[in-house]
Design a binder for these strands. Sequence first.
RNA 1: GGGCGGUUAGCUCAGUUGGGAGAGCACCAGCUCGACAAGCUGGGGGUCACUGGUUCGAGCCCAGUACCGCCCACCA
Length: 802
Amino acid sequence: MPPRYDPHGVEERWQRTWEEEGLYGADPDPSRTPYVDAHPPPNVTGELHTGHALQLALGDTLVRLKRMQGYNVLFQPGYDHAGISTQSVVEKVLVAEGTSRQELGREAFEARVWEWLHEYGGKILHQFRRMGASLDYRRTRFTMDDDYVRAVMRLFVHLYRRGWIYRANRIINWCPFHETSLSDLELEHVDVDDTLSTIRYPLADGGGFVAIATVRPATIPADVAVAVHPADERYTHLVGREVIVPWTENRVPVIADERVEREFGTGALKITPAHDPNDFAIGRDHGLPEPSCIGLDGRVTAAGLEGLTQQEAAEKVLAWCRERGLLEKREHYRHSVATCERCHSRIEPLISLQWWCAMGELKQRGLDALRTCEVRFHPESQHRFAIDSLENAPDWNISRQIWWGHQIPVWYCPEGHLTVEETEPAACAECGSPDLTRETDVLDTWFSSALWPFATLGWPDETPELAYFYPGDLQTTAREIIRLWENRMIFLGLELLGEVPFRDVIIHSTVLAPDGRRMSKSLGTGVDPLQLIDKYGTDATRYGLMKNSLTQDVRFSYSAIEEGGKLANKLWNAARLILTACEGAAPAERPATLEERWILARLSQTQRRVEALLAEFDFAHTMDELYHLTFDDFCDWYLEAVKARLYDGDADARTTATAALERLLELLHPALPHVTEEIWSHLPGRETRLIVAPWPHAGNEADAGALARVQEYAQVFRRSGVVPKLEGDEKRIFDAVVKPDRAPRRENGNVDAERERLWAEVARAEKMLANERFVANAPPEVVAAEREKLERYRRELDAIGG
RNA sequence: GGGCGGUUAGCUCAGUUGGGAGAGCACCAGCUCGACAAGCUGGGGGUCACUGGUUCGAGCCCAGUACCGCCCACCA
């Protein structure tokens, strides 16, 4: 065993060994209790980032604990086909090759995507392996696998027959680059500098005008009304009259609606239902028409402006207004606009025929499960957020106009009848026409992701896996996908299988860059976890990420990773001492010494503490406990106390030390799997791997405080230089650990300073105890604790001759 | 605008029903004593963001303010 622990090579070797020996695998076994964590499938084109790394560290730590505790653990891996993301990546390749998706045509494009995926996709699961994630890789699933596609089709047909899927014209977010609709959740809002124009709409019956403010004059040709707030006295006399829209010179009504902000602009709002979500809602409620003046390519279609960009059209319209004295003013205006989160094109709100999933009953079932805590989000604040999100969930736009994805299983006949089947029907269900055309839209990626916890187990077939592993137990995810994913898995699990897919959802912290900003490639603030693994090792990276994971947002910290590296090295050297000090010593029989009873008690105590912390998913404090157990208790006190006997060849000391080390390794394994398994393999007589070693039973903790007095006196000695009066075992341990004869000589000043400090403490405690109100009002145990402290300070003062 | 989190040592963060301000890193000093210099021991360093309140006593509880951040919404 070399004097330094080097994770390189060791970690990858164990990752291979565990997987090859089938120790990650889980199969149905009715004699054992299952524990299931269906890990969020990353994008098939994705790369490991710190969010994944933290997510894996948390999930894997818990799953390893459960495995040791005897559960039949299924940690489910897989990929998501990630519709728009993947299509974008491949399209970029095509552009670089001088061709395009349109040129290839749909079928060839899809083939090309598969080709690309076979070559470049799916690398991220190899990166998951580098995190030591004990996923059952044999069971890797892809949301475009044949079986999975069948599950998605079944879901669509199921929901359609339930009457919850419908087709309707609504205003949607249109991405002109990807040429598809996007859900609200796929947008990114960015601030832009813009111009706010105030334009006068003359009253049709003469006698003045109404001025409105707009940032999009190009949409004026599609105006169908001007709206004012019903309580706005400036305008009440105009409601019901008509104004003339510039450029088109159409007559439109002035209407009253409470959604108009009186304070913004002039307090009057032009209504363009076809190109603004808010206007769309107002228009529908007032029964207004919905003419359009902008096409799918983002260009203007209005009469006289055909084919112009919106910028060009705006200038023409504004010039028209200026000539007629209708342009009141133009001013700089900074506001946020919606962009596509993938390509950052500006989103066009358009009215379009789309497929929708009604949320009514599904939402209700999900809410019931959340409110009764059948599923619990952790921390509690995220549980409330999940409920709020679901309560406010609008109907779900499930169709996308892209090519990479699950094509919607709807066929149209020439008569316009719809046939909805899982597989291609021979004829129209209504008129029998064999002339069928399939819907070209594909489904929203999250529609298929929502099946993950059960489609991975074989649903809709009644497989042994589904029967045994469903419902699962755990989900570990990021905050931003609670609405996109978690809530939908919950209500679909209830709808399709009658049970929630998991009990607990850990919402982990967001890892911010060291400077406190969001980690992002474009800001250059990202930290690459693979580089961390290369530099510090996987165990250190896992430890460091989990150490700082307590609050909602947490800054990345290199020093926390380094701390993990030190912990691994410390452990390594503790093992080196125990294993090399007295090789080949003969066994003997003697009662356990004070320090031996103490360390075993401390190990049990920490174990129970760790179990309690992990039951509450408190990983940060778990790391803290493990660190101090290893450094302070195990190395600095216990090993220092028994070291001499180990070198003297005391076989009992070695036996106990090895047993204590085993316990320590077991406690540390879930968090630091590699270094612990490596040390474990050096222990004599190992028959099983640590990864599947049984989690220990908590033992006797009576002696956990046995060294308290020695530790107190060590403090006093180290500060004052006065050797305390101790006897027997206590003196022996004190001498071995503190080594008073080797300590540097102290000047009298040290004694005086320590004496002064203790006197101050005594005075403070005496004052508190003399305070009648304190003694009367404070809880008895607090008063008792204060008396104990006072006694301790007096004892320590006595020890240094105060 | 809404929701949530944060503000404690130079940095990253703990601080468990209110009762002696902590850890790791960094810094300084001393230790090569048969595991580990990625070590051991000690030390310096804090107006616990601010204001007010409750209390014998507040980092912690209450009210308010400021600033930082994450998520959501979108007033055209």
